[in-house]
């Protein structure tokens, strides 16, 4: 008995596969329509609404939103008190990002270059484990750790380094009564909480750098430091930038950590929270919310101009 050139149809799955084979665009449309709708309507739509709100203003006497185009609300951002909030948030985000990159790089490098098999699993577990527990629990745990009666003060005192802690807390601007009520404390907790988001993309990009490239650099006469500056860092840059997008934007938008740990000075997230809630000033809250978006766009275009994505 001879077999035909065409195998028998086994039902719906085969007919669908055949349809997708004849019309690949059908499959493509099926796959991307739902996320496009989500992105287009829900995400971009609400972003548009936010943008629209920021061009309205509030009537100072009645507290009613005046739905007329104006730049007055954006003008308010430049008032000294609001500018303080923006600059404070920007400085915090930048220093958190920098610290995360500096602390995270060796960890990511080790994981990408040397960790194999079981050690790789240990690495991923170690990085991801803190993400599994509630964010609030971690922040409150840090409040206890950093408190005046907490373990850091106790440890510093018992090894006779209390004076060092006092000196750090006496630093103008960033110091305070205790670590949990200072900017240093806020910064420490931000770095702790967002560090995994920096390490993972850096590790992914470092993993794609072939060993032969490092060998070639050394073969051509480069010292370790030169290899790091001219080969490793440029090739890892897309990962560093990806990680910094996370740490930067997460820090800029956060309103819980500075609420629980730190001084009473406000960050953008807290300002937005209070303006749209208690104060009912939706336009100004919207204008504040646009600030991180603009900062991110400026940051990315600077990074692009600096050649951060050349290796992509």
């Amino acid at each position: 008995m001879s077999r035909g050139a065409i195998l028998p149809n086994r039902g719906l799955a085969d007919r669908l596969s055949a349809l997708f084979w004849r019309r690949p665009t059908v499959l493509l449309l099926l796959l991307i329509t739902p996320p496009l709708l989500w992105l287009g309507v829900v995400y971009l739509g609400s972003l548009g609404a936010l943008l629209l709100q920021s061009f309205y203003s509030i009537d100072e006497f009645s507290g009613v939103v005046v739905e007329e185009f104006t730049l007055k609300t954006y003008g308010e951002l430049f008032r000294a008190a609001n500018m303080d909030i923006i600059l404070r948030t920007l400085t915090m985000s930048a220093s958190v990002t920098l610290a995360s990159a500096v602390i995270g790089f060796p960890v990511a490098y080790f994981a990408a270059r040397f960790a194999r098999g079981r050690w790789k699993a240990v690495f991923y577990l170690g990085i991801m484990l803190p993400l599994w527990s509630s964010y609030l629990v971690k922040v409150y745990a840090w409040k206890l750790i950093l408190a005046k009666e907490g373990i850091i003060t106790w440890a510093a005192d018992s090894v006779g380094l209390g004076f060092l802690l006092d000196a750090v807390l006496a630093l103008p601007g960033v110091g305070g009564n205790s670590l949990s009520t200072s900017f240093i404390g806020t910064w420490l907790v931000f770095v702790y909480v967002w560090l995994p988001y920096m390490i993972l993309p850096m590790q992914a990009s470092l993993e794609r750098v072939p060993v032969s490239m490092l060998e070639a650099s050394s073969d051509l006469g480069a010292s370790r430091g030169q290899t790091f500056r001219t080969v490793i860092l440029p090739l890892a840059m897309p990962g560093v930038i990806a990680g910094s997008i996370f740490t930067f934007s997460l820090t800029m938008g956060d309103y819980i950590i500075p609420q629980i740990i730190g001084t009473s000075a406000r960050f953008i997230g807290q300002a937005v929270y209070q303006l749209q809630g208690t104060a009912g000033n939706i336009p100004l809250a919207a204008a504040f919310a646009v600030v991180p978006i603009i900062i991110m766009l400026v940051y990315l275009s600077l990074a692009k101009r600096g050649g951060a994505f050349d290796a992509l």
């Binding site: 032969s212 060998e215 070639a216 050349d310």
Partner: peptide, 18 residues
Amino acid sequence: PNRRSVNTVFQDYALFPH
């Protein structure tokens, strides 16, 4: 390696992509 007057042509060429 960086102080040996020996240079290598690598199997995968190892050119710097950036």
